[in-house]
Design a binder for these strands. Structure first.
Lengths: 118, 118
DNA sequence: TCAATAACTCATTATTTCAGTAGTTATTGC
DNA sequence: GCAATAACTACTGAAATAATGAGTTATTGA
């Protein structure tokens, strides 16, 4: 639970209010989040296949990241009611797709232009 | 100081190794960092003018973010030796300029396409 | 000489985020 | 009927990050 009366939190609000980019980066900075997004984009549409793809991710983190991505409208969650047991499938939304393209650009920039010392 | 023998750290390394984007996002996610970059781009070339521009930032955080931006080749630090007292001026590098453009795109996306609930 | 400013550093505490472990519900295969 | 799998939730402790506050060096202006 987040403390709502700290300078830490006020500053966060100030920055998110100042520019939506801060809000987006705060989301993207959650560990594994972009990797989950890319993994789904690459065809891992199930909880278990993403989990296998990102071999060190733990269940609770994956569950949380999927929930976040859905909450922010970047993926959809679909329960196939016919199948028994219930299969859950995830897919990118249009917005999720656009984001993944933008992140691709950023990734190329990181690989091509940036120097990460050490 | 960072602990070098934790799963937390190993996962970070794994992700940064997997994709440079994770490294970049980890940098960008440091609070105030993109704001300092934009502030310099907008003409606040001195420690004190950035500090004034980002009114709630504290000295040690600003000092740290400037050091990081310089370390990663996104800004340059120039001490004007002639002036007394020594004036320090910051400016974006070419890479810093490119990054700021990419972040502009991301910002427009965040403002136009994303929905941030709550 | 005394307060003020620029551009910082350092140490301590507060907050947030991450990982580890266990537990849940429902169903299939043996 | 018993272990195994899918897709989770809940709780606890560890690690990373941010904020607070004081201290530094050099210099200027009153």
């Amino acid at each position: 639970m987040r403390k709502l009366t700290s300078t830490n939190y006020y500053n966060q609000l100030y920055l998110e209010d100042k520019c939506a980019l801060n809000e987006l980066i705060h989301l993207l900075s959650k560990r594994w989040l972009t990797d989950v997004l890319f993994s789904i984009e690459e065809g891992n549409t199930r909880f278990s296949s993403v989990k296998e793809d990102l071999k060190y991710i733990s269940d609770n983190i994956l569950a949380d990241r999927l929930k976040l991505l859905e909450h922010y409208g970047l993926i959809t969650r679909h329960e196939d009611a016919d199948s028994v047991p219930v299969r859950v499938e995830y897919a990118l939304t249009g917005t999720g797709d656009q984001l993944s393209e933008l992140l691709d650009h950023l990734c190329k920039f990181a690989e091509g232009q940036m120097v990460f010392p050490d």
